[in-house]
Design a protein around this nucleic acid. Sequence first.
DNA 1: TATACCCATAGACATGATCTATATCTCTCC
DNA 2: GGAGAGATATAGATCATGTCTATGGGTATA
Lengths: 304, 304
Amino acid sequence: MSMGINYELYKVFYWAAKTGSLTQAAKKLYLTQPSVSHAIKQLEERFGVTLFSRTARGVELTQEGAVLYAYIEQSQMLISLAEEKMAALRNLESGELRIGGSDSLFKHYILPYLEQFHERYPGIKLHLNHGTTPEIIGFLKEGRIDLGVVRMPIVDPQLQVMETYQLQDCFVAGARYEHLKGEVLSLEQLLRYPIILFSRNSRARMTITELFQSRGLPLRPEIEVGSVDLLIELAKRGLGISYVAKEFVTKELEEGVLFEVPIDVPLPPARVGILTMSSVPLSGAASAFIELIGKGSDIKEDAR
Amino acid sequence: MSMGINYELYKVFYWAAKTGSLTQAAKKLYLTQPSVSHAIKQLEERFGVTLFSRTARGVELTQEGAVLYAYIEQSQMLISLAEEKMAALRNLESGELRIGGSDSLFKHYILPYLEQFHERYPGIKLHLNHGTTPEIIGFLKEGRIDLGVVRMPIVDPQLQVMETYQLQDCFVAGARYEHLKGEVLSLEQLLRYPIILFSRNSRARMTITELFQSRGLPLRPEIEVGSVDLLIELAKRGLGISYVAKEFVTKELEEGVLFEVPIDVPLPPARVGILTMSSVPLSGAASAFIELIGKGSDIKEDAR
DNA sequence: TATACCCATAGACATGATCTATATCTCTCC
DNA sequence: GGAGAGATATAGATCATGTCTATGGGTATA
């Protein structure tokens, strides 16, 4: 660092000016007085200007020294603030956590963790960005979110995936289809009823469509919605049979406003995964959040 | 400097963040890439936080790194400004020069130098503070002015004195006393005429009073004024004979509106001196000004 | 006059900043 | 797919320079 002025000298200058004494500055900086004296001299030689007038009681800024001090004081304040801020970030007293996911996963999976997290680290600002799986991945790659919560499977070499929560999709109906209670339907039978599905670009929709297609059956939903709440609501009102994760309708199933319509083929369980950028280091907040989720469920991290 | 974070590291961090490349930062700082890499690592370890995500194309600030950068960038700007300002101060492109003196010395002695100085160094702000000799000395000791211009002799161990300009006091009269032209008066004869003197606390006044007293003559001025201009004006209008430095009335003497009234005892020449605080280093502007004056007259610096 | 406290200076010393050499990784281009 | 360019990381040697001790001079204070 031969060029330019050593910024350490400004630290010394600051304390010398602030305390009005090289000896006091030395104490503040855990140095000896000659070191401080030497540091100030270096600054003066570099600038070609006398910064202090030396008296028997200490030192006093000259006109030029006072000019320098005006700038350096500000600069020093900022650095102090920066150091405080960084300490706060490390201790998770400050910072932000930006999560991407679907509304339904937020509501039924992430929410309790968010509450815990916020209670434990109240200084950290939370940002929730909802979107479809491809959108979430886009946000991640743009650096707009720290982590995404989406349905598996995802294969993307740029992404780090941790599978956590397990979802079991199923068909549910409301009172209007009461007569189906206790029955186990085949896929063909199911198709005789109006089916309500989540929108085309969702992973759940793709999974069930594939299942029907593999048996040569065309799955044509009567109604297609963009919100899981609506999916549930429509089923409750009897507009059809909804395909939805059982975990999202636990309350409705308990209350009896919905009941499951079992089918004769096993529906594969869907895993939820937490996505992060593999090349971008996790922020303190993000890793704390992931750890929190890890405690609440068994994580299967992908080996890749 | 074992405690705290080495501020040099911030300089490295700044350039690494700004260029987005450790290699580029190294070039900017005339360092090698491993040095920069090491510096960043130190910062990260001190903060317990990752500041950059390393990619194949360089580095990119993490969330935490971006927070730090926001502060450090500001701080860096201030330091750059400070360094520019100090360079400007050294080159006398900026700064200020505060001079104390009497109005008459400003007008008749300092003014041409001020003009030269301002022409040569237009960036330097000029402050003129007028006052009596004791006031000027007070200003100096308070640090309110850089230098004072007063009549000698001054003896004060805290002050550095340089004698420069020489003044020759004399008595002058206007047309009303035309009949005195060509005469040489004794002090007693002079006392028959109304005398106009500068105010009591001036050095010129003290000198002439002593001269009369040493001969047992009481010097009672008819009129006492606080401004040399007024002293001259009153003499021109014939209200009396004024005691004034010949150098202050050269124009009036040439024009003939005033003429000198010689006396039969030699009036000692008065020297003008430039005062500075001996314990306070001169500002660049002040020493440049003193040098300028030095070229225009032969300075006799006191040995002390 | 003596004491105490300040800053300046000189020279010895050791820390730690910096360098060289090398490894590893990731894009890109052929 | 393999080679090359260019990025960062790591290890160890080196030496610059920051820091210390010792000392001196100066100025207030008692």
